[in-house]
């Protein structure tokens, strides 16, 4: 699994593409891309554990909800996460059951980057490929 930032897409914001063999890895890696945009991942130690449960009828909207939840936790609870374990099952609708590890934002000990404000629907896509899954995301800065 991997993510890469797309240098010539949505120039006032930040775009990234994620590829992974499984849906679970796709979600975890998208979480890491979000972190990379916000702070130096090496500075976000695994001090706090948070359980996150979400559900949606569409898989793309579930990824949207997942990233929106991480952005919400950054502002409402001052949390950044650097490790994710994600489980997704389909029981009528998609259900996400995840554990995220990270720490409280620390202005002294963390290299902070962009204050990500939202995940957008611009070019937003989750699709199945020959090798697994792929997502394109533009986050608003």
């Amino acid at each position: 699994m991997a993510f890469r930032f797309l240098p010539d897409v949505a120039i006032a914001d930040i775009a990234f593409e994620v590829t992974a063999a499984t849906l679970e890895d796709l979600f975890a890696e998208a979480g890491m891309a979000l972190l990379e945009a916000s702070a130096n991942p090496n500075d976000v130690k695994l001090k706090i554990k948070k359980e996150i449960k979400l559900s949606n009828t569409h898989i793309d909207r579930l990824l949207f909800d997942w990233l929106a939840e991480l952005i919400y936790l950054k502002d409402a609870e001052s949390l950044l996460f650097s490790k994710f374990e994600v489980k997704i099952k389909r029981d009528g609708e998609y259900q996400l059951d995840a554990t995220a590890w990270g720490s409280t934002i620390d202005y002294k000990d963390m290299e902070l980057r962009n204050d990500v404000k939202a995940v957008t629907m611009h070019m937003f896509e989750v699709k199945q490929t020959d090798k697994g899954w792929m997502a394109t995301v533009v986050i608003d800065i």
Binding site: R61, F64, A68, I71, Y72, D75, D115, K117, A118, V119, M121, D140
Partner: peptide, 17 residues
Amino acid sequence: SRGFGHQIATDYLRVFD
């Protein structure tokens, strides 16, 4: 309006979808 305005936009993006 910082993240506050964005959260409102995110909430209603789902409604409008």
